[in-house]
Design a protein around this nucleic acid. Structure first.
Lengths: 192, 192
DNA sequence: GTCTATACAGCGATAGAC
DNA sequence: GTCTATCGCTGTATAGAC
């Protein structure tokens, strides 16, 4: 990678790539240096607290992306049509996002390993935000609170499990099929 | 832990616990030593190739457990009743297994990090065995090949995603509810 | 703001006594 | 079969020149 990374935002993007590929704990500073093109000095200039700072920044960046592109659209709007569209968009955006990012969800990755606790709150927030936003959209489609909450939780679980299978099989198509069936299930009529 | 671990089998069980808690890469030999009660010498006596050997042994142990307790029962038997019972048993056993093991699936954990490739084949085998065995049971219930394969894949994804949410929420009940709805979906009548 | 050099702790792995 | 001591390497983090 070229040695012309200019600002923190570029650094964060590059860091996300490294962490996705090598994991948080095994993505060493030497590798980070190589793959981001920043020297040790620059890295500690942007992230004074070191690796923990880098992880925080990356998770924050991912959070923002999902908030803007997925969660907010699910929450806004008042009618059934906009809810349908938001659920559709969620599935489309989610597939595109993860397929282009090695099928790795960094928040899910954070539930493993030894620094689990360090980011536990952020991780919980990410998933509750997703489930809650999706449930909001489903309630707009006329589902009861309970039914909406169940379907939303199941959908997020299916997506996350789909990512594991995609990595295990080395096959994006599997993930896409799982998300498509999840979409159908989300948009199915309320049970009698 | 007492310093009276006698054979390799005990060592493997202890190792599995360490890897579940710390991950494969960050569970260092010092920690392994402490938590298993074996010294460095003993560890390298049982696992001459070091950490890779330990990981292999642990994954093999998990594989065997699933083969005997989950996969084989799903595959055997000829009638609908036994297939229902096997699916029921799968859900029950799966919940009990993971709840008592920090909600961590070591094969799923192996799809992340840098040694992803080392165990890629074993990981793929574990998931295809599970999906195939489950699909076999569903076909015995009268589902078409295609419908059985889809439901089996979705069920394994739901379980794996459920584990992620269980860890993110620090809450086993969420996982249990997801598996219960998965069971209902697996045993639902074939679509018209 | 970025570089190189370096401190020093911890890693996986091995050797050799018992 | 298990122990302790130790190797060589790599890890994160820091210091100081430019």
């Amino acid at each position: 990678m070229a040695r012309t990374v200019l600002d923190r935002a570029d650094a964060v993007r590059a860091l996300a790539g490294v962490f996705r590929k090598r994991g948080f704990e095994s993505g060493s500073l030497s590798v980070i240096q190589q793959e981001t093109g920043l020297g040790r000095g620059s890295l500690y200039h942007f992230f004074p607290e070191g690796k923990a700072d880098m992880a925080r920044a990356v998770l924050g960046h991912v959070s923002e992306w999902f908030e803007e592109r997925i969660f907010a659209p699910l929450r806004t709007g008042e009618n059934t049509e906009s809810a349908d569209a938001a659920v559709d968009a969620m599935c489309r955006e989610t597939v595109a996002y993860f397929v282009s990012r090695e099928s790795v969800c960094l928040f899910a990755a954070m539930t493993l390993g030894q620094e689990r606790d360090t980011f536990a709150e952020a991780v919980r927030g990410y998933f509750t935000d997703w489930v809650d936003a999706l449930a909001t959209a489903l309630r707009r489609r006329g589902l009861t609170d309970e039914e909406a909450a169940s379907r939303a939780l199941d959908a997020v679980a299916a997506i996350q499990g789909g990512l594991i299978l995609a990595r295990a099989y080395g096959d994006d198509a599997t993930f896409e099929r799982i998300v498509d069936r999840t979409r159908q299930h989300l948009l199915a009529p309320a049970p009698r």
